[in-house]
């Protein structure tokens, strides 16, 4: 493999994609991806986030060779995705959370066998890789079960294994944890961290779950209306937009609005029985805020809410519009 391709896994320059949308009799042009430029180095784990319709899926389809860009350049694994689609298919793995690449009426094991044939894996490699994935993803119990009978969590693990069977350099995950319960999410995240550590697989994932980004990614790309709105570390994202966490406390008795240093009172419910306090995790900690609250009132219960992706994106967008005006 040449030196340049091993350094940069994805390179996107001035990438645009328009769609023609029929609106009654008129045909409108809609820009889903608008002159984006960024790249991903080998071994990185990148979260690609944005609101619905921000252009995430369109970008992924262009990276995988399913869609042709309207303008600009895209290189994935050093290849031109549309022109070198077949070669590229051997180097990337893609998991679409909403559509399955497994055969719904066959046992999981058989789906893996077929995919091994599709990727021309030797029997020895097929066995070694399947065994490894079955073990680390804990799929032993349901290898003989037809895919249609699996729970969503089991199916997603099988989907991820299917995408990794041929040892791709790049794994693209489109909403991998959507609809999963907490435990299944956790398992999947732990696996992806391990896969990355052991094989150096590059990760690119779109998600609506800030938890995915926090636990899996060391870099975040935020898209808004097809444009790149932020590119940097997660901490940096928190700093730029002040991604606050919210501490929700249930108090023993109704209480006036709490005033806590380093935190902002958002609102009260039940006449002050429940109060929402926002704080910046970079400036203070939840423990310090809680300690300050406890000095003023008896705390019965508490929860800490992560900022939602939509929230983060909205703030980035607000920031962009205010700074440009």
């Amino acid at each position: 493999m040449s030196g340049t391709t091993s350094d940069t896994i994805v390179e996107v320059r001035g990438l645009s994609r328009d769609f023609r949308v029929r609106d009654g009799l008129k045909v409108r042009r809609l820009t889903a991806v608008d002159r984006m430029t960024w790249s991903i180095a080998a071994g990185e784990a990148v979260g690609y986030i944005g609101a619905n319709g921000a252009g995430k899926s369109t970008t992924i389809k262009m990276l995988a060779g399913i869609l042709v860009p309207t303008a600009g350049d895209v290189h994935t694994c050093g290849l031109r995705p549309v022109k070198d689609r077949k070669k590229l298919a051997r180097r990337i793995g893609v998991v679409f959370g909403q559509r399955s690449q497994l055969w719904w009426d066959l046992p999981v094991r058989e789906s893996f066998g077929i995919l091994a044939a599709i990727h021309s894996l030797s029997r020895a490699r097929e066995r070694a890789r399947t065994d490894e994935l079955v073990e680390t993803l804990d799929m032993g119990d349901y290898l003989g079960t037809p895919v249609r009978q699996l729970s969503l969590g089991q199916r997603m693990r099988a989907e991820v294994a299917a995408a990794l069977l041929h040892r791709p350099q790049l794994l693209i995950l489109d909403e991998p944890t959507i609809g999963l319960d907490v435990l299944s999410k956790q398992r999947l995240r732990e696996f992806l961290v391990r896969e990355r550590a052991e094989h150096g697989t590059t990760l690119l994932l779109t998600t609506h779950d800030m938890g995915d980004v926090e636990r899996l990614c060391d870099r975040v790309l935020v898209v808004d209306h097809g444009r790149l709105a932020y590119d940097g570390s997660l901490d940096g994202l928190g700093r730029t937009v002040g991604a606050e966490r919210v501490l929700v406390v249930d108090l023993a008795e109704p209480c006036a609005e709490l005033a806590v240093p380093g935190a902002r009172h958002l609102r009260s419910e039940g006449g002050g029985l429940r109060q929402h306090l926002a704080f910046d995790p970079a400036a203070t900690t939840a423990a310090r805020v809680l300690a300050a609250v406890s000095e003023q009132a008896d705390v019965l219960d508490l929860t800490i809410a992560e900022p939602a992706v939509e929230d983060v994106v909205r703030r980035i967008y607000e920031r962009a519009t205010t700074s440009s005006s």
């Binding site: 389809k61 060779g65 399913i66 077949k86 070669k87 298919a89 893609v94 679409f96 559509r99």
Partner: peptide
């Protein structure tokens, strides 16, 4: 419509 065609694009055959 169901998206199964996209899956075919991810495999190294015509």
């Amino acid at each position: 419509r169901s998206g199964t065609v996209d899956i075919l694009y991810l495999r190294p055959q015509p």
